[in-house]
Design a protein around this nucleic acid. Structure first.
Length: 411
DNA sequence: CTTCCACAGGAAAAGCCGGGGT
DNA sequence: ACCCCGGCTTTTCCTGTGGAAG
């Protein structure tokens, strides 16, 4: 088969990059109140005083990070108009950082050259903090704003959130030298309540809540972007409202709505039609859902993969639903077959409850009294084909499918 | 109403790792 | 060379749980 030449004519998209995650819009629509509150909260900085600590919360895709970026850019730009004002900003994305310690290390590293980074293990807690204070004292600025994005991932370990807001007061950082402010961003609005009371007070001097977008707001946002992204007249009338409705019902996330719109356009383009229609949106929605499940399956630890394989085997033999001890037997055989470590039943129970939480399994309770006791029966709650697909693509578990048949012939 | 079974799952400790400091 | 540090996974230990049988 011969390739077709690449062409740049595109009946659908004018500038598709406008729809990507990486694109930063010049204006943030439907977030006027939040932006105003944000700027207001930063007033003390402009007046040369110690900043208030600000806490932003709201689900993903509601504009928190973009708002922060825009407001801080503007602040850095406008500081020229004020004498003796020099604001520095340091940004740490705390996703995947599960402890205060890791956040502290990450912060220290933002002040260091790439070839001079410190390691995430090995140092004592105090030593890393001492380094941090040193770096902050050394910077040449009147103010330092520390942005901690997705701060909820540190969970209940809130030591760094206790340390940073009172570094000025504790004399760790001399306020005449650098005035320190923390901007915490959280996707989880229950996070604030989990924090130690003394941390709550100091960290969240000013709170800005970003509510999820409703369908109407999402419509405005999508129209705003679509104007640049799509060729005029390439969108059927009901496409944007439908994207907005899907995303509005599920998450209220602009990111999700944009992704859906982009995917719909992509589907239309691959069909070589010149208009995006409702059916493209529905197909895109299905694809997104399936993709999400698959990504999550792939990301599971190998013990979970083995557990799923065990259950797949049992499903073939009509043995599901099954109790955890029986699943463990099959797991044990599968793990031996590929020379993986066989973990204890307690571990597999944890895997089972994780799979349950992610919605891949469902369980029903059974109780057979004094000659049976109570236990759970587990069964699969996703398409078996999807599991098979993922396990066959995985380097470790794919041998189970070829060797598995050999094995069963031997026995 | 009590007993008793067969797990469920929390808590804490153990063990391994990669990587410090002295 | 040695011991210490924090992260992470796994094991060990053990208390809870719910309903049929007694």
């Amino acid at each position: 088969m011969s390739l077709e030449p690449f062409t740049d004519d595109d009946p659908i998209f004018r500038r598709e990059s406008v729809l990507r995650d990486t694109y930063t819009p010049e204006t943030l629509v439907e977030r006027d109140r939040e932006l105003r509150e944000f700027q207001n909260a930063l007033k003390p900085v402009v007046k040369g005083e110690v900043p208030k600590n600000i806490f932003l919360y709201g689900q993903t895709g509601v504009g928190k990070s973009i708002a922060t970026e825009m407001v801080l850019d503007r602040l850095k730009q406008d500081q020229e108009n004020f004498d003796d004002l020099n604001v520095e900003v340091t940004y740490v994305l705390c996703k995947n950082l599960t402890s205060s310690y890791q956040v502290t290390v990450e912060l220290v590293n933002t002040f260091r050259e790439p070839e001079n980074q410190i390691s995430g293990t090995g140092h004592s807690h105090g030593a890393v903090l001492a380094k941090l204070w040193q770096h902050i004292n050394d910077i040449d600025a009147t103010h330092l704003l520390i942005v901690l994005d997705e701060i909820d991932s540190v969970g209940t370990d809130d030591d760094i959130l206790y340390q940073l807001p009172r570094a000025n007061a504790n004399g760790k950082v001399d306020p005449n030298n650098v005035k320190l402010g923390v901007i915490g961003i959280s996707n989880d609005f229950t996070f604030r309540d989990q924090l130690d009371a003394r941390v709550q007070d100091s960290l969240a001097e000013d709170e800005i809540h970003f509510p999820p977008y409703d369908s109407n707001q999402l419509r405005t946002i999508l129209h705003d972007r679509a104007g640049n992204a799509f060729v005029d007249g390439a969108l059927a009338d009901d496409v944007i409202p439908l994207c907005a409705a899907f995303a509005g019902q599920e998450t209220g996330s602009a990111r999700q709505a944009l992704k859906l719109l982009y995917k719909s356009g992509d589907l239309a383009r691959s069909e070589d039609v010149s208009m995006v229609e409702e059916r493209h949106v529905r197909a895109a929605q299905d694809l997104v859902e399936a993709g999400k499940a698959k990504d999550e399956l792939e990301a599971l630890p190998s013990q979970s993969h083995l557990t799923l394989f065990a259950m797949l085997r049992m499903a073939d033999k009509g043995l599901l639903p099954a109790r955890s001890t029986d699943i463990y037997d099959y797991y044990d055989r599968a793990a031996r077959a590929i020379d993986a470590d066989v973990k204890s039943i307690r571990t597999i129970r944890s895997r089972l409850s994780q799979l349950l939480m992610k919605g891949f399994l469902k369980k029903t309770q059974r109780n057979e009294g004094l000659n049976g006791g109570s236990f759970f029966l587990y069964e699969l709650d996703i398409r078996e084909e999807l599991i098979r697909e993922v396990l066959q693509e995985d380097d470790r578990t794919k041998q189970l499918f070829s060797e598995g048949s050999k094995q069963s012939r031997i026995r």
